[in-house]
Each structure stands twice: as C-alpha cells, then as structure tokens.
C-alpha cells in the first residue's frame, strides 16, 4: 500500500504521524511525507522585485525550506521506527491542491492529513485543508484528530498501541464504496485483540412521524432483512481475515448522527466509511454524510474511495 502524509509542522500533523506510525497497514507499505510551502508571490510579482527584495525573498524561502526539511527528517524517523519505508518531498503552492496532486503523482492509495479544527468564522472564510483534500482527492483520505482536542470529554487520539487494541467502526450500506471499505479492512494487519463493529444505518423519514408507518410496513421489514443479510455477509468477509467483528443495524432519521453516536458507544479509534459521490441536487438537498462525519467526529475518520 502507498500512503501519502501531508504535514505542516502543526500539532495535528504530529498526531497524524503518531497515528499512522502504529497503524496496522499491510506489510511492505510505503509512506511519503509531503509538506507544502505556500507560494506567497505570483510569477509576475517575482519578476517585478528589485534585486534587494529578491535577495530577501530567496533568503526567507530557503530558510523556510530548511525548516521544512528538518521537520520531514524528524517525522521520517518516527515513521521508520514504526517499521515503514519512508520518502519525503517538499512542494510549493496551495496546500490542499498540492497534496492531492502529489498523491496522484505518487499513485497513493491513501492520503493522510491532520484535522486542523479551525472553528467558526476562520473555518467559514478559509475552509479547511482536510475538507478540501477529502472533496477533491481521487484516493481514500484519512483525517486524524489530535489528542488535545477535547471533544465530548473524550480523548480522540488512541494511546500507545501496547495494551490498547484498535477499535474500528466500519459503516456499511451495501454500496460499492462501502464494499471497498470492507476490502480495505481485510487488507489490514490486525492483531487478535483488534475489533471491528460493522454498522448499517437505515435512513428513515421522520418528518410527520412517517417512521411509525414505515416501521409497520412489510416492504420496509423486507428491506431491513435484506440489509441485515448483506451486513452479515460483509462481516463474514472480515472474519475470514481473522478480525473480531460485531454487527449492528440501526434505523435513524439522521444517518451522520447515528454513525457518530455508534462511534462513541463502541469507543472506536477510527470511523471507516465509503465516500459516495452524490449528484449536485442531492447534495444540495440532503447533504453528504462523509464531510459531516469528518467535521463533527471526535475521532479520526477514514473515507474510502
């Protein structure tokens, strides 16, 4: 597996490094760490600089580049200690776009970024890099939350792996992306103590209490049975690879909310879900589950494409 980690020296990036250093990637996984320096000046602006300004600019840039290279070197060490083959790259440009471009060049299966947790107005103005990567990447994206981010009184970053087995919440809905999420989990090198909860959320219309009607209807009951069977089949696929799997099927008016609750209840370290591309109208009307989970989850989120 090829993994690309976007880093910027922040605490969340450091948390991402710790997270994947201990992650049960399959043996032989290669990790590339990429850091992006923001292009402060456009080309025509550079052309207009005086010799003196150009000197200052170059000095600043090479200084920044030096710092970034030091950072990448130290992060490489942490990952190499985790047993992975590591390469590094420094790029310049717009962070999210360059991370996505780097991943495409590297042919990465997975992009890992820290969740910056910008809040309120800042987030509204700037958008978050992790969200932009999630929306525009062609590969799967893992968004890591850092430990200090207090969230509903929980500590989102799993402690040292010794004595704390991985707990994954895998969201399954029978779609192609969610089948890929199952495939991803079967590739992992999970130990005996690790456990996966496979979760299916059946969306219900709760408006005007239509859920009461739905619940009593045999068409709905049939659908529920079919989903249950599919979920069990997915769980069996995981079990064949030696994972401890439990299954849960819930009905809810709000799918994202139900997934987040299940994650809390299971005390999961990571929510794994298939990222579905939705049509523009549907996204406008209904919203999209993955970005909402990525935004609101207290724990790390892995969106599989």
């Amino acid at each position: 597996m090829k993994v690309l980690l976007g880093t910027d020296g922040s605490e969340t990036a450091a948390a991402a490094v710790r997270f994947i250093a201990g992650f049960p990637f399959p043996a032989g996984t290669e990790i590339r760490i990429v850091s992006v320096i923001w292009d402060v000046l456009l080309e025509h602006e550079i052309a207009a600089l005086s010799t003196e300004q150009w000197g200052v600019f170059q000095e600043t840039e090479s200084g920044t580049r030096g710092e970034v290279e030091d950072l990448l070197a130290s992060e490489s060490v942490t990952l190499q200690q985790g047993g992975w083959t590591v390469t590094t790259e420094v790029r310049s440009g717009h962070a999210a776009a360059e991370i996505v471009a780097a991943a495409e060049e590297y042919e990465a299966d997975l992009i890992v970024v820290g969740s910056h947790g910008l809040t309120g107005f800042k987030r509204f103005l700037l958008g978050s890099v992790s969200n932009q990567v999630l929306q525009s990447a062609q590969s799967s994206v893992l968004i890591v939350r850092k430990a200090e981010e207090e969230c509903n009184g929980r500590n989102p970053e799993p402690p040292a792996r010794e004595g704390h087995p991985w707990r994954f919440l895998l969201c399954y809905d029978g779609s192609e992306p969610s089948d890929k999420a199952v495939d991803f989990c079967t590739q992992l090198d999970l130990d005996e103590a690790a456990s996966i909860e496979a979760l299916t959320v059946l969306p219900m219309v709760r408006l005007f209490r239509q859920d009461i009607r739905q619940e009593l209807n045999w068409v709905w009951q049939q659908k529920k049975e079919a989903e249950k069977t599919e979920l069990e089949a997915a769980a069996d696929r995981l079990r064949q690879h030696g994972a401890n799997v439990t299954t849960t099927l819930v009905e809810a008016g709000d799918v994202s909310h139900a997934i987040l609750e299940a994650g809390d209840e299971f005390d999961a370290d990571l929510i794994v879900l298939g990222h579905k591309g939705k049509g523009a109208i549907e996204r406008f009307l209904m919203g999209s589950v993955t970005p909402r989970i990525a935004h609101h989850a207290c724990i790390s989120v892995l969106a599989i494409r």
Binding site: P203, M204, V205, L207, Q210, R213, Q214, N217, V219, W220, K223, E282, L285, M286
Partner: peptide, 10 residues
C-alpha cells in the same frame, strides 16, 4: 426525502 433515502414505497 423518502425517494432520496431509498424508500420509494413511502
């Protein structure tokens, strides 16, 4: 809403 949520019967 029901159609989007995959419940055409409703």
């Amino acid at each position: 809403m029901a159609a989007f949520l995959g419940n055409p019967g409703l």
